[in-house]
Amino acid sequence: MLLTATLSPTVSVAADAKATHAEPPKIDVSHVNFYYGAHRVLHDISLQIQPNQVTAFIGPSGCGKSTFLRSLNRMNDIVPGARVEGRVLVDGADIYAPSVDVVALRRKVGMVFQKSNPFPKSIFENVAYGLRINRMTGSKDELRGRVEASLKSAALWDEVKDRLHASALALSGGQQQRLCIARALAIEPEILLMDEPASALDPIATQRIEELIYQLKSRYTIVIVTHNMQQAARVSDTTAFFWLGKLVEYGRTDRIFTAPTEKLTEDYVTGRFG
């Protein structure tokens, strides 16, 4: 009912994405509007994200990718004046229902932020933090094992194994970014939201993160925001293209990159965007 003419392709594409997967969607978003105070940032977003898939969000700066991502684990709750309309279901349950335990939701829907934000604690304590507060490990050895495994997954272990108790703030920007990935992985969420996780990484570290995403796919549902078209094409199964707060096109990645139905999408993915 709220759908406008410009958004109708989205619906058909979402349908095509859905048709290829028999499972119920992991995340089901319908008619989401988002406001910072009076400023409307998202316009009637509807999409479904399938389990064990990698979904890429692409679009020009300021189009609302981070805002949308943050509305999937209610990180926007703490932004004063922020308001969400519409419905977001995770595993079929409305995450904005009054009875929802936000803490449990965020454990299930982990997040790596656009700006890396290590705690001013040691490298070890950064990764152990989530495990500690959620009481997820019984013994000290188990804790150490989980920290090590998470750092290895995030391709950081070799660089920090000799200085686990040094301050995380002394790490380089790219290392901090991988530390934040390790921190999010440690508590093994079901869904992992990654906001430009490779923006400060060199090609080698980027490749390792992409390999990691590929491996994690079997266990997690991953949503990744990226400005790197090649990266989106390489790692994702489905791609959503946002533009000025609207979802322009959503569908299988290969199709979005080779045969987009929208002119805007085509211009953007081919770099002809002005």
């Binding site: 990180m75 997040m111 934000n117 290590p118 705690f119 001013p120 507060i133 959620n134």
Partner: peptide, 21 residues
């Protein structure tokens, strides 16, 4: 504020985020 967000995103309550981070 990003520090607090980091803690909340890992499943910390508000009080926990304040006192541990």
């Amino acid at each position: 504020g990003t520090m607090r967000e980091g803690a909340l995103a890992l499943g910390a309550t508000r009080a926990r985020a304040v006192f541990t981070v």
